[in-house]
Design a protein around this nucleic acid. Structure first.
Lengths: 114, 114
DNA sequence: TTAAATACATAATTTTCTTATGTATTTAAT
DNA sequence: ATTAAATACATAAGAAAATTATGTATTTAA
């Protein structure tokens, strides 16, 4: 597990990127997928995820669709076209940021960062 | 400039790593060095930096030394031995985190992440 | 002589998360 | 059959870490 402060600021990007891959997902599924893909190193808490999903819906990046599995409800989220754009932007920005950080922390000898 | 949320959580690591390289630095110098090294992409604000430096000093990672340049004071910060350790830990953790993120954002095809 | 740069500092506010709490259904274990 | 764990949602209180704003003061460049 990483110290939680690192994950801050990356949650939206993670969610948008997963939805871009999978088409649609429900909240709990997202927490499990991130946990699986990262070998338990990143654990998204529900207290962080659900408000984020609601915010992304409100701002027009996501749309929802309810599905009933027996009596239990699942709320599927998928990207709107605006969400597609935002996803690309966010992922590119994070990738760029990580390159800059690697250079700054001299984890790479030089870098053609221009 | 990156959206500010990305930088969150990396400030301590940046500061500790720079001090490990340069031996000692003063606050303003740190802001300028980060700005220069990142082509203005990362701007550390003084409102974020100074409280962080104070906190790292209080927790025993940093020690200070005042120097007068004319009438103006400069407060130089350097790593204690405890700070050396923390610096290594933090940098390693961030590097590991970035690898995990790259994989999660499928910026790398597979990854020997075991 | 005035603005910009250097150099420190702190307070108010905002953002974003953690932790805690709550409800309810389904599945696995005893 | 009963209970614990997993699934699935949601929100509120509090903490952490930043931004923005403000303040002081010296030095350099315009």
């Amino acid at each position: 597990m990483y110290s939680s402060e690192l994950i801050k600021g990356t949650l939206k990007t993670i969610v948008l990127n997963l939805l871009r891959d999978k088409g649609k997902m429900y909240g709990y599924e997202i927490t499990q997928r991130v946990k699986d893909l990262t070998n338990n190193k990143i654990q998204i808490t529900e207290g962080a995820l659900y408000p984020t999903l609601h915010a992304l819906t409100k701002s027009g990046e996501l749309e929802t669709e309810k599905q009933y599995i027996g009596k239990r409800v699942r709320k599927y989220y998928s990207l709107t076209s605006q969400g597609q754009e935002t996803a690309s932007q966010k992922v590119n920005e994070l990738a760029d940021f990580m390159n800059t950080m690697k250079f700054l922390l001299n984890l790479e000898p030089k870098l053609g960062n221009a």
